[in-house]
């Protein structure tokens, strides 16, 4: 008969005919077990679920640790400070601006120095980039004769709040910059390292 089941409705009818009957003594057995104080066995602990929850817990813990380590928000806490205008390249004119992108106002991710050619007192498309770096400070030009190192202090260059940042620059006047970094002035405990 199964071979002739062309339609699920036939299957429905066939399955509907199936009935099982427990042995007649089962009812008495249940009542007897209950009377003897036999109680249902507790179900096995769902190990799979436990492992899933443990995994979820570890993931959450990892996420929390990541957030704590990255300063609660990563990209959301990135700050950009545009300071204009100073003489950053030693050229003699106070026509240079500095753009600092930092995380949490301390970890410098990008530092650029531009010449404010259009006089807008901020970085715009018409300005000339004299120096641009990301990450740690490094020399971008070979050290040559005539190169000068100078320091400007103190302003809030990193957006951290207080005007306690200094900038140190190695430049070949009038407009070539080999290295630029900022650091925090901490009179009591010494300066923080270049960043």
């Amino acid at each position: 008969m199964i071979a002739q089941l062309a339609d699920p409705r036939d299957l429905d009818a066939l399955l509907g005919r199936i009935q099982f009957r427990p042995r007649a003594s089962l009812e008495g057995e249940v009542a007897g077990r209950w009377a003897r104080g036999d109680r249902p066995t507790p179900g096995p602990r769902p190990v799979g679920n436990k492992l899933v929850w443990l995994g979820v817990l570890l993931l959450l813990l990892g996420a929390v640790l990541y957030l704590v380590q990255s300063g609660f928000g990563g990209l959301a806490q990135v700050r950009t400070v545009d300071r204009c205008c100073e003489d950053f390249d030693g050229g003699g004119d106070r026509d240079d601006g500095m753009l600092v992108v930092s995380r949490q106002g301390s970890d410098v991710q990008r530092l650029a120095i531009y010449e404010d050619l259009d006089g807008s007192r901020s970085y715009t498309a018409g300005d000339a980039l004299r120096f641009d770096r990301s990450g740690r400070p490094s020399l971008q030009q070979p050290l040559t004769a005539g190169m000068r190192t100078f320091e400007l202090c103190c302003r809030d260059y990193d957006g951290g709040g207080p005007a306690d940042d200094a900038v140190v620059i190695m430049a070949l006047p009038p407009d070539r910059i080999a290295m630029a970094a900022i650091y925090e002035r901490l009179p009591a405990a010494g300066d923080k390292s270049l960043r």
């Binding site: 199936i18 099982f20 009957r21 427990p22 089962l26 057995e29 249940v30 077990r33 109680r39 249902p40």
Partner: peptide, 24 residues
């Protein structure tokens, strides 16, 4: 019993599960 029997291979297994169900 008949519901359980659709899910287990033998009448003995169905007996056990049915008895356990009614104890619960």
């Amino acid at each position: 019993y008949s519901y359980v029997r659709f899910h287990v291979a033998s009448a003995d297994e169905a007996d056990d599960v049915t008895a356990e169900t009614f104890l619960k």
